[in-house]
Amino acid sequence: MTEYFDPKTQGGATSKSRRNFLKTVGASGVAAASTPLWAQATQARAAETPEGDPAKASAPAPGMSRIQLNVNGVERTVDVAPQMVLLDVVRNELGLTGTKKGCDQGQCGACTVLVNGQAINSCLSLAISRQTDEITTIEGLERGGELHPVQQAFWEHDAFQCGYCTSGQIMSAVAVLNDDRIGQSDAAVREAMSGNICRCGAYKNILAAVQDARKAMKGGG
């Protein structure tokens, strides 16, 4: 059984508790009956610690602003510096590490997230400017443990090798398939997704996955 990160039930993570999260997931795989003491202790800390939830703490540190970000349908309170980009806030402050940092300068697309349904490069977007927006990351695509049709199609088509660009590819693909103005031909999909570079060169399978997901989404999937 695979667990998918659900910010609705596993929110409040910080960069520190991301490690806790990984440990927790690792521990759950060991099975509850034989959960070692260290893992039990880790799980307890992850559940109880208020760290990462600035709403419970005092005023923001000097130079930081306390903002609300709507990420995957959940309002999150986070303290950010003016120069912090959405990519770093999502990964390091909210613990949503599915969004990847590739080039960090808008040349690779690994950091693609959806803002109000549109794909953007989160590495070039100041987090403070996104307070009124609806942000969706790769973690926000699944519903009740069911993969989004695009995720499922990437899985079935083996549409990756190293996997580093994959979350960005999937987010772009979701935006492409939700945009009626983008043509349905292979060429139109390639053009619309040309901002997502795959160093492994898995483009053939990525394209096949996107076109397959199109059918699944039309079929009400």
Binding site: Q105, L124, S125
Partner: peptide, 26 residues
Amino acid sequence: FIGGGTTLVDLMKLGVMQPDHVVDTN
């Protein structure tokens, strides 16, 4: 001034542009 940020944030990361104040136009 910052609009979409696709030039300015990139160049600030590289240290090519180093403004003391950034005025958000959003």
